[in-house]
Design a binder for these strands. Sequence first.
DNA 1: AAGGTAGTCAACCGCCGATCG
DNA 2: ACGATCGGCGGTTGACTACCT
Length: 240
Amino acid sequence: MGRAPCCEKVGLHRGPWTPKEDGILIQYIQSHGEGNWKILPKEAGLLRCGKSCRLRWMNYLRPDIKRGNITPEEDELIIRLHCLLGNRWSLIAGRLPNRTDNEIKNYWNCHLSKKIKCEVPPNPESKSKTQKKNSQKKTKQKIKLQKTTTEMMMTTETKIHCPKPVRLTSFKSDETPQSIGANSNKVSYSDGEILFGGECLCVSDLSELDSGEDHDLDFRMTVWEANMLEKLYEEYSRLL
DNA sequence: AAGGTAGTCAACCGCCGATCG
DNA sequence: ACGATCGGCGGTTGACTACCT
């Protein structure tokens, strides 16, 4: 059974927002606050999907958003955070005041890919004139970017573990963390935690880990991985 | 001047975890 | 306990513009 659509798409506006729509949305949120994106369009009189309203507000209309002119400091921070966190744009954006994840994502895909390209020898195949569609070009660029990013990370002073991005479960600091990781691998620890931007990665005493006692583990964090986490934390701390 | 190519970015899509009833 | 729903996220698309040949 597939997931139900977030809204009825029939009769709704799509594409670029008009100034009028922007005005309606801003006015509504100013008087009612954020949230309830599902009912917002109906109540505000917008022929838009709630998700679309949320996106427009979050990425464009919010009054505290800083747009354009990414400074060299921000540029460097994005690169370092990306090495640490991977494509977790919302987390990266959380460390760059008033920047949106969408802007950072776009910035990475445009500016920083170019930057990385300059740092590696050109691929002779990249000059092919037979590439007819933008999508094809972009796909190749992305594959290349992934390769070069990996190469770059392999040669950086601090070698960064760059796993496939996974969602981390957040929990309050006074609760016992129950699980981290992906693919249903469960790790439960009694103490020790590393905080990443409001989310929590947990590392317990390594000896405790090795005992494997009372741990529902399909996957066991190795000493190497734990050390890597510590290094990551140090690197992250320096960035903050 | 015209057509092609590359860069930019707003917006959409679909998935996932959290929450609620 | 379980299904439905919502909010949030990352990936991708496509329109628009600037630049190149």
